[in-house]
Design a protein around this nucleic acid. Structure first.
Length: 740
DNA sequence: ACATGTTCCCTTTTT
DNA sequence: GGGAACATGT
C-alpha cells in the first residue's frame, strides 16, 4: 500500500512546524515512520532526530519499522532517538542531570515507590493519613508536577485551606527526600529535563559558538511527536524547547484524548497551530482500518462531544457485518458467551491475536480469565498487576538499586528486613533518627551504628546487614547483571527463606525470580554496554503492557491499554452506566467527554467485527449492583446494529418466558452467537437498517402485528419467531415483515 | 518481632 | 472482593 496524497504531504513537508490531525486508522504511524525515514534519506543524521511516542511498545514498534524502512532504502538509522517522554528524559538526565542535582546513577521511583515515600513523609509531618489520604496528597502533587508547579507555588492549585498547607509542606518534604535519595519520580523526569533546558537558555549568552553543539536544545534538527493530544503542559514546553533549532512535527487526534486524568491537556493540540508560526495543518480522514458500520458507530458516539477539531472519517471499504449489542444477565453469562464465541472462532482458524476483550477497569477481567481458563484457551491480561510489582521482584530490585544507589533510603528500608532478619520498625526508626540528625541517608547510619539508640541484639543484627551489603558490593564488582542477582539472592538468604518448593507460593516466587534473571540476561545480551541503571530504568518505566509475552493468545485489556492497536474481533464489555461511563464521570461533563472519547477509541480498534455487551446485574465492591445500559449504546445508529437479549417492554422474566419453549425449528435463545457475525451479507437485520430486539413489534401482510420472540439465520434467510396477536406463534422469513 | 486477625478504605484509566 | 494499615496475642 502506498501513501495517499495527504500522507505524502505530511511526509514531505519541510520548513515549518507541522500539525497532522490523524483520525483513527488513517495511517498515522505510517506517516511518522515514513517521515523519519525520509528525513534520514534527505541526509539528516539519525542522532539529530528525536521521535517521541506515548508507550514503550509504540517506541519499540517505531524503531523496528523505521529500521526496516531504512533497510529497504539502504540507509542506516543507527543513533535515532525513539522513546516515550519519560524514557527520553531519563536518558537525557543520565547525561545532563548533574546540573539539577541528580547523579549519573539516580533511581527512578515508580508509582509504588512514590506512594511509599509520600506515606512516610506524611507520617514525618504528623499528618493523619485518614484525614489526608496518601493517594489524595500524591494526586495533588502529581497534578502540580504535570503543570510545572513547584512546592512553592502550590497556591496555584486553588486548594482549600487545611489541604493547601498539607499539600505544600508534604510536597516540599517529598521533593527533599527524593533529591536526598538521588531519585526522581515520573513528574521529575519531565520537570528536571525542562530545568536543564531552561538553564541552557539562561547561560547561552556566555557560551562560545563552538560550545553550542553540546547543547541539548541544539542537538535535534527534527522532532516528531506521536499522540500529541495526550501531552500535558510540561511535555508541550519540553517539546518546544527540544525543538528550539528543529522542525517540529506533531501528530494526534483530539477525539482520542483519553489521558486528561493524568494531566494531559487537549488544549495543547487544539492550540498548537496558534503557538507555532507558519504551522502547516494536514488532516488525515481516510480510514483504512474499519468497515462502514464500525465507523458509523464510532461517529455516532463521538458526534455528541463538544470541543473538537471536527473531522469525519470515511472509508472505501464495505459496510461489513452488523455491529452487535448484547445483554446478559450477569458477568458470568457475559464472559461465557464471549468466550464460547472466541472458542468457535479459534476452531474456525481465527488467529487468537486478532481477538480482544476490552473493559473499562482492570477489576472486570476476572470473569473472562476464569471462563478462558476453564476452556483452556491461552490469554494474557494487559493492565493488571505488573510483573515488576510483585513482591519478590520488588525485593530483589531493592537490593539491586541499593548496590547502584546506596542513598536510596526506600530501598534500604525494604531490603533491611527481607528476608526477615529480626530488624523491625523500631530498629529502623532508630536508624532514621540518627540519619536525620545529621541530614544523612540511612546507608550512612549503617556506618555509625555505635551512635544509634539500639539494643545490643538489634545492633548486632543491623551490623550483620551492613556487612552483607558491603560484602555484596565487593562480590558483585565486575559481575554480569544476572550473576549479581543470583549472588544477591544467595548471599542475602532470600532464596532459602522462601521455603520449600512444595509450597505453591514459594515455587511461584522462585519462578518469577528466575524469569526476572532471564530477562536480565536477555537485556544484557541485547545491550552489552548497558549498566544496571539502564535496566532499572527500563523496569521503572515499563508498564504491564510491556511484559506481554509473545505467545499466540487472546488478549484481555483495558481500553486505555488498547490505544494504537487494531483487531478483527473486538468485544467491548461492561457497557453500563457507572461502569462505562465510569461512575466518577457521571456528574462531570469534562470527564464524561473523555469517557466518550474512550468509547470512540474502543470502537475504532475494530477492523470488522464489533460486539458490545452489558449485564443486568454486576458484582461491584463485593455487592450486587443493577446498572442501566450505557448511554453510549443509545448513540449508536440504528442502521447496521443488531441488538440481542434486550426487550422493548415487559419484565426480564417475561422475556425469558417468551424465549423458552419457542418453535424448536429455530434457536430458542436469542441467537447472538449465531453465524450472523461471520456472514458478510448480514448487514442490517430483519428490516433494512432496523435494529432487531426481543419484544419488537413486527407487521406481517397475512398474520398482522406481533412481538418478536427469537430469530435465527442471516440476511435473506433470517427467520423470526413472532407471537402474533391473532394467529399465535409463527416462524417466518424476516424479509416478509416490516417493523410495526 | 512477628503472626494472625480486624477493620478500614477504596478503586478508573498509566508513563 | 481485596489490599493495606492497624490491633492484638504469642
Amino acid at each position: 500500500m502506498s501513501l495517499n496524497a495527504e500522507q505524502k504531504r505530511a511526509v514531505a513537508h519541510r520548513g515549518s512546524s507541522l500539525l497532522v490531525l490523524a483520525g483513527a486508522g488513517t495511517g498515522k504511524t505510517r506517516v511518522i515512520t515514513h517521515r523519519v525515514a525520509a528525513l534520514i534519506e534527505d541526509g539528516v543524521e539519525p542522532w539529530r532526530i528525536l521521535a517521541v511516542t506515548f508507550t514503550n511498545k509504540a517506541a519499540g514498534e517505531m524503531r523496528e519499522r523505521v529500521h526496516d524502512l531504512g533497510h529497504e532504502m539502504g540507509i542506516s538509522t543507527d543513533g535515532l532517538w525513539v522513546g516515550t517522554f519519560h524514557a527520553t528524559c531519563a536518558r537525557i538526565l543520565r547525561r545532563y542531570g548533574e546540573a539539577v542535582g541528580l547523579s549519573r546513577s539516580f533511581t527512578i521511583y515508580d508509582a509504588t515507590d512514590q506512594r511509599t515515600l509520600m506515606n512516610r513523609v506524611l507520617k514525618e509531618l504528623d499528618y493523619s493519613t485518614s484525614m489526608f489520604p496518601t493517594a489524595q496528597v500524591l494526586g495533588y502533587v502529581d497534578r502540580a508536577k504535570n503543570r510545572g508547579i513547584g512546592p512553592a507555588s502550590v497556591s496555584q492549585l486553588d486548594l482549600e485551606e487545611p489541604l493547601h498547607t498539607v499539600v505544600s509542606r508534604a510536597y516540599a518534604r517529598y521533593q527533599e527526600r527524593l533529591r536526598a535519595a538521588d531519585a526522581a519520580d515520573f513528574g521529575d523526569l519531565l520537570n528536571l529535563t525542562l530545568e536543564v533546558l531552561r538553564n541552557e537558555t539562561a547561560s547561552r549568552g556566555q557560551l562560545a559558538r563552538e560550545d553550542e553543539a553540546g547543547q541539548l536544545a541544539h542537538r535535534f534538527q527534527h522532532v516528531v511527536v506521536d499522540e500529541y493530544q495526550d501531552t500535558n503542559a510540561v511535555q508541550a514546553e519540553l517539546v518546544d524547547r527540544l525543538a528550539t533549532r528543529a522542525e517540529l512535527c506533531v501528530v494526534g487526534d483530539d477525539d482520542q484524548a483519553i489521558y486528561g486524568w493524568r494531566g494531559a491537556d487537549v488544549a495543547q493540540i487544539l492550540g498548537f497551530s496558534a503557538r507555532h508560526e507558519d504551522c502547516e495543518i494536514i488532516r488525515l480522514e481516510q480510514n483504512y482500518r474499519s468497515t462502514g458500520h464500525v465507523l458509523s458507530c464510532a461517529d455516532g458516539i463521538i458526534a455528541a462531544n463538544h470541543r473538537r477539531h471536527g473531522k469525519t472519517l470515511w472509508t472505501d471499504a464495505d459496510d461489513g457485518p452488523p455491529i452487535r449489542v448484547c445483554r446478559f444477565d450477569d458477568q458470568r453469562d457475559e464472559a461465557a458467551a464471549v468466550v464460547s464465541e472466541i472458542v468457535r472462532h479459534l476452531d474456525d482458524g481465527v488467529d487468537p491475536e486478532e481477538m480482544v476483550v476490552f473493559f473499562r477497569t482492570n477489576a472486570q477481567s476476572r470473569p473472562f480469565e476464569e471462563a478462558l481458563r476453564e476452556v483452556g484457551v491461552g490469554y494474557r491480561v494487559l493492565g493488571g498487576m505488573r510483573f515488576f510489582d510483585r513482591q519478590e521482584i520488588k525485593d530483589l530490585v531493592a537490593y539491586l538499586r541499593l548496590l547502584d544507589t546506596p542513598t536510596s533510603d526506600l530501598d534500604l528500608e525494604r531490603a533491611i528486613n527481607r528476608p526477615a532478619r529480626g530488624i523491625g520498625q523500631k530498629s529502623v526508626d532508630a536508624l532514621r533518627r540518627l540519619a536525620a540528625s545529621e541530614s544523612q541517608s540511612l546507608h550512612w547510619a549503617l556506618g555509625e551504628l555505635d551512635r544509634a539508640e539500639l539494643g545490643a541484639a538489634a545492633r548486632k543484627r543491623v551490623a550483620a546487614f551492613a556487612d552483607l551489603l558491603a560484602r555484596l558490593r565487593q562480590d558483585c564488582e565486575g559481575l554480569a547483571l544476572p550473576d549479581v542477582a543470583r549472588v544477591v539472592l544467595e548471599a542475602s538468604g532470600y532464596w532459602e527463606a522462601l521455603g520449600p518448593n512444595s509450597d505453591i507460593e514459594a515455587a511461584s516466587r522462585r519462578d518469577n525470580l528466575d524469569e526476572f534473571i532471564n530477562a536480565l540476561a536477555e537485556f544484557t545480551a541485547a545491550q552489552p554496554e548497558a549498566t544496571l541503571s539502564d535496566y532499572l530504568d527500563t523496569i521503572a518505566l515499563a508498564s504491564s503492557e510491556d511484559d506481554a509475552d509473545a505467545r499466540q493468545v487472546v488478549t484481555l485489556m483495558t481500553i486505555h491499554a488498547g490505544k494504537g492497536l487494531e483487531f478483527d474481533h473486538v468485544y467491548v464489555t461492561g457497557m453500563e452506566e457507572g461502569v462505562f461511563p465510569h461512575v466518577r464521570s457521571l456528574d462531570d461533563p469534562t470527564a464524561m467527554d473523555e469517557e466518550r472519547r474512550l468509547a470512540y477509541v474502543a470502537v475504532t480498534r475494530s477492523r470488522r467485527y464489533l460486539t458490545f455487551s452489558y449485564v443486568g446485574r454486576r458484582f461491584m465492591f463485593g455487592q450486587e449492583q443493577v446498572n442501566r445500559p450505557s448511554r453510549f449504546l443509545r448513540d449508536l445508529p440504528s442502521k447496521g446494529v443488531v441488538r440481542f437479549g434486550e426487550r422493548s417492554r415487559g419484565s426480564a422474566a417475561a422475556t425469558r418466558r417468551a424465549t423458552v419453549g419457542a418453535n424448536p425449528a429455530v434457536d430458542v435463545e436469542p441467537a447472538w452467537d449465531a453465524d450472523i457475525e461471520l456472514d458478510e451479507g448480514a448487514s442490517g437485520s430483519g428490516e433494512e437498517g432496523q435494529a432487531l430486539y426481543i419484544g419488537m413489534n413486527m407487521r406481517h401482510p397475512k398474520f398482522g402485528v406481533g412481538d418478536v420472540v427469537s430469530w435465527s439465520g442471516v440476511g435473506d434467510h433470517l427467520k423470526l419467531t413472532v407471537d402474533f396477536a391473532r394467529y399465535g406463534r409463527k416462524t417466518i422469513l424476516a424479509r416478509f415483515c416490516v417493523p410495526a
